[in-house]
């Protein structure tokens, strides 16, 4: 049966995040020919409504308020619940991002509903949709469904392909007025630390370093390689514990779980905890001096050698490739 699905368009630094377009694609599967309604929440965000429609939303409901300039769970839950009451959807889809992880449990609590977090794949459509999600940080997967009531899911970035943008698509954009009040949290400051400006969770390419990187300076060539490839830098727990980099870069069972198109592991031995965080990447390249290193067991391509020799050569080759293509 066709369903009505509400999707939150997540705005970061004035632009919609890719995961929101992926969420629309997920919503279309759940809708099964029904309606996909975009939700936009923020201070000055209505100009982004068109993009949601171009990526497959049928219409968009916007809530704008000065108190929604920065994300707070109080502010955004009031706005999203008001949109939900207006739209009366059968399902809700959010990205499994910092914002989605923080907001979705509160909404689920209010709706007294189940919530399927961190979905990487949807099997089937409409009422038959089953949701696949990693457990044990990707060491295993579970296939689940909501028994009854509203279908509420968050999707992991970079796993469900968005549909192609169509600039000819048109749809209605309406603004809903909501009085946002009683915010219990004040955002004082945000310090940007993500070095290349690409989120680890959304990066198509990740260049990751381990103990073999040997120092904070040792990460410089990895950063350069990541920049050339438009990717992000990650790290193993060993590198973080040794103080070579910030814990926010850590990939593994504690830390982030990532699934980029290309994962380059440099000087990482491949402890089971690290493998849990990255082994579902589409293509894995391992660079390690030790031919017995565990990381080679999950790598598609391996180079046995010193990362400080290999990475500079890789930088040159990728530069040459860029010039030629």
């Amino acid at each position: 049966m066709a369903k009505k699905v509400l999707v939150l368009g997540e705005v970061r630094e004035g632009a919609l995040r890719n995961v929101s377009f992926e969420a629309i694609a997920a919503a279309q599967k759940i809708a099964d020919g029904g309606e996909v309604v975009g939700a936009l929440i923020g201070d000055q965000v209505s100009q982004l409504a068109g993009s949601l429609i171009e990526y497959g939303a049928d219409r968009v409901v916007v809530v704008q308020h000065p108190h929604l300039k920065s994300y707070t769970s109080d502010g955004f839950s009031q706005a999203l619940l008001a949109i939900k009451d207006e739209v009366k959807p059968d399902a809700i889809v959010l990205g499994h991002t910092s914002l989605g992880k923080d907001l979705s449990p509160k909404i689920a609590s209010r709706l007294q509903s189940g919530l399927i977090s961190d979905v990487t794949e949807i099997e089937g459509t409409g009422d038959d949709a089953l949701f696949i999600r990693p457990i044990y940080s990707g060491k295993a997967f579970e296939k689940v469904k909501i028994k009854d009531g509203i279908v509420f899911v968050t999707i992991r970035p970079n796993n469900i392909a968005p549909i192609e943008q169509d600039t000819n698509r048109a749809g209605e954009v309406v603004e809903l007025s909501v009085d946002i009040q009683n915010l219990r949290t004040i955002i004082k400051e945000v310090v940007r630390k993500a070095s290349t400006g690409v989120d680890l969770s959304e990066a198509k390419v990740i260049v990751s370093g381990g103990r073999g990187v040997k120092s904070a300076d040792g990460f410089e060539p990895l950063k350069e390689l990541a920049n050339i490839l438009g990717g992000a830098v990650g790290a193993s727990r060993g590198a973080c514990d040794a103080g070579y980099c910030d814990y926010s870069l850590q990939i593994g069972q504690t830390g982030k779980v990532v699934t980029p198109d290309l994962y380059i592991a440099a000087g990482i031995s491949g402890a089971i905890q690290h493998l849990a965080g990255m082994s579902n990447s589409k293509v894995i390249v391992a660079i390690n001096k030790d031919p017995e290193a565990n990381i080679f067991k999950v790598a598609d391509y391996g180079i046995v050698g010193d990362l400080f020799e290999v990475i500079p050569l890789l930088i040159e080759e990728f530069k040459a490739l860029k010039v030629n293509s």
Partner: peptide, 27 residues
């Protein structure tokens, strides 16, 4: 509110190719 239909392991990755030869040629 949620029903688990199935639990499964990810497909086993078979070990890939270790490249050989001069380092610059490997790269």
């Amino acid at each position: 509110k949620i029903e688990t239909v199935e639990i499964f392991l990810p497909p086993q990755k078979s070990a890939g190719r270790i490249l050989e030869g001069e380092l610059s040629a490997q790269v």
